[in-house]
Design a protein around this nucleic acid. Sequence first.
RNA 1: GGCCGAUUCGUCUAACGGUUAGGACGACAGAUUCUCAAUCUGUAAAUAGGAGUUCGAUUCUCCUAUCGGCUGCCA
Length: 513
Amino acid sequence: MSNRRVRVRFAPSPTGPLHIGGVRTALYNYLFARQHGGDFIVRIEDTDSQRFVPGAEQYIFEALKWCGINANEGVEQGGPHAPYRQSERRDIYLRYALQLVENGNAYYAFDSAQTLDTLRREAEANGSAFAYNYQVRNKLETSLRLSADEVQQRIKRGDNWVIRFKMPENEDVEMDDLIRGHITTNTASLDDKVLYKSADSLPTYHLANIVDDHLMEISHVIRGEEWLPSLPLHYLLYRAFGWTNTQPQFAHLPLLLKPQGQGKLSKRDGDKMGFPVFPLHWKSPEGEEARGYREDGYLPEAFINMLALLGWNPGTEQELFSMDQLIAAFTLDRVGKSGARFNPDKARWFNAQYLHRCTNEQLAPELMAMLASIGVSTTPDRAAKAIGLIKERATLLPDLLPLTERLFVAPSAYDQKSTDKFWKADNVRLLNELKAKFDAETQLIAANIEPKIHEWVKGNQLPMGQIMNTLRLAIIGVSQGPSILDICEFIGKAETLKRIEAALATLGEGRTA
RNA sequence: GGCCGAUUCGUCUAACGGUUAGGACGACAGAUUCUCAAUCUGUAAAUAGGAGUUCGAUUCUCCUAUCGGCUGCCA
């Protein structure tokens, strides 16, 4: 068992978009598989016909692709265990469910939804919770109580039935988890879970999961902590099938908690938190929309890096990891045990780190597209130059546009605060002197003109800050951004002079303050 | 309610039973600068509480508290 080939799976249910907790689970599975030279399988668990959401499956594939989490077996890429969509494997499951009925580990139950509902309500009224277990299964309409003939008759005449697991009455189940260590649970507190339902001829998660993991030769099950309570059931199912010797090892990941408030992160949180909980923008069939990290301008590498460190750490002080570095460094034993609430500021910080490391040329097409959206066209070369000026000021991709817009389009208005502060008679007079200096240059080169300005300022004891900010105001209309001389060089001499004149014309000679 | 799990700065986290309990984000302060950022330096900030075990406990055990998960013919 220990030298079995590593095969892991990510098995989402297409009931909506994948949220970042799901992405992290996929990521950890992927990292684990890659590190061990094993296989990463994507299986779609669409056994809940009621909650199926059109488009969700496609969203999941696209999200994984964006993240760079690529499967080598699965719905899209096929493989030796196809099909990988459980709804296409339906005929497999009944056989296995029946096998358990035959060997005495499961039984038919004919209870109606209403019966169960009233039972639950009664229990609730008594201040307890209803459990479908050994104490009640012989009193209800099950094949344990009914005669074999009657069971067959009911099935034949089309009564709805389910197959339930016959949980042992009082047995300690000893389990091992790669992250949590040894866990013991007594079966007395467990109930008889439904494994298969005739209503839609589909298994429930528990059955489908065990059968498929077995058939697909899964070696390690890495999933969220919400599955920990069903681990004893799953152990018992492997035993009931006689598959204990090839049973996968389990690792239950700590949950991702809501950024604010209480509880685990859920799909319903949408982007109410002020930042996305989904990798990609999502629009439900009903028209509900939610933001995505991609559309908010995160780089997938940054997003993945941030997610990887939420619940796992390398044990060193390194924080920036490429996917390959993650594959090399990841180990299950350095995954934490407690739930993690994630920090949107940290996510932004990660993105800034990655953005600053991008080359100007890499970012140029992004900027060109954004400029095009406001009707500005430019060359890749100009775009790259502009990015060079503002890159370190950007955190997210969309920051590129407001940061560079004034490099391509002259200001149509001047920031009021800056105007009040700098547009004064004295400054305007100095600005005119500065303009003359620019005019004297054949070409505006920041490196050339800067020493001349410094000399002039120093020699005449002029207020450098006042002059430069007045110039800045005239050129880009606000008092922020990169070095103003670099901006002048970028827009060129003619445009610089034009903008100064425009500012002079619009703002006048300035007040004497 | 029952069962299971978890608990270190505000957040993510590190620390063979022996450290001034470390790092990062954020906050604050300073440096730099023509502005805003970025960058650099620094400051504040934590072992949930109580019993044990031990020469010594963040680390092991128990209790309590709190948080979380599960308790569906959902996954």
